[in-house]
């Protein structure tokens, strides 16, 4: 109970500003992304994923994680990037937001890193004030840039029946 409460408070704050802390960074192609570490439940290697019919195209299927059925999303598809073949480094990051669990297929998991609040900038406006809704900020560490993923937006318009399989 306590945990969920703290989460929800964090979440409400995140909608506007992203606070610094520990992040798990990963790669999609050459771009590095980051997720708040507290949204991460665990990282697993690629496992057999069972396709499920009548699902959105970015849902790759479900996997059996120690007896729990977890839906798995192709993050590349979700971000509108081209699909690539799975490699040895392809991993699944299992994230949790509120009660929803979701596996995200990423090209490569990088590291757990600290990003301070001051290192986080708002995402730049693209075109006519449109912001990429899946990002909540950009972390700058030394010369590198890590795009901080907005977990809630990523899971936002996923149909309910995807999570029903839980």
């Amino acid at each position: 109970m306590e945990q969920t409460e703290t989460k929800s408070t964090v979440d409400t704050q995140e909608t506007t500003v992203v606070e610094g802390g520990k992040f798990l960074s990963f790669f999609l192609g050459k771009e590095e992304y980051a997720i708040e570490i507290l949204k991460v439940q665990e990282i697993i290697g690629l496992m057999p994923i069972t396709p499920v019919p009548k699902m959105p195209d970015y849902i790759r299927g479900v996997l059996n994680l120690r007896g729990n059925i977890v839906p798995v999303m192709n993050l590349r598809t979700r971000f509108g990037l081209e699909m690539v073949e799975d490699t040895e480094e392809t991993c699944i990051i299992v994230i949790q937001d509120d009660s929803s669990k979701m596996g995200l297929v990423v090209d490569k998991v990088s590291e757990v890193t600290d990003i301070a609040t001051k290192q986080i900038e708002d995402i730049p406006t693209v075109g006519a004030g449109m912001k990429s809704r899946f990002l909540s900020g950009i972390g700058k560490i030394d010369e590198t840039v890590k795009m901080i993923m907005n977990v809630r937006e990523v899971l936002y318009d996923v149909p309910e029946e995807v999570f029903d399989s839980n």
Binding site: K22, Q41, E42, I43, E89, C91
Partner: peptide, 21 residues
């Protein structure tokens, strides 16, 4: 060996996640 290193890396990351929690 490479495979083991990869698995170890994942374990270490998971451990880091747990530690952060």
């Amino acid at each position: 060996i490479d495979d083991i290193a990869f698995q170890t890396n994942l374990l270490a990351l998971n451990a880091a996640v747990e530690a952060a929690r």
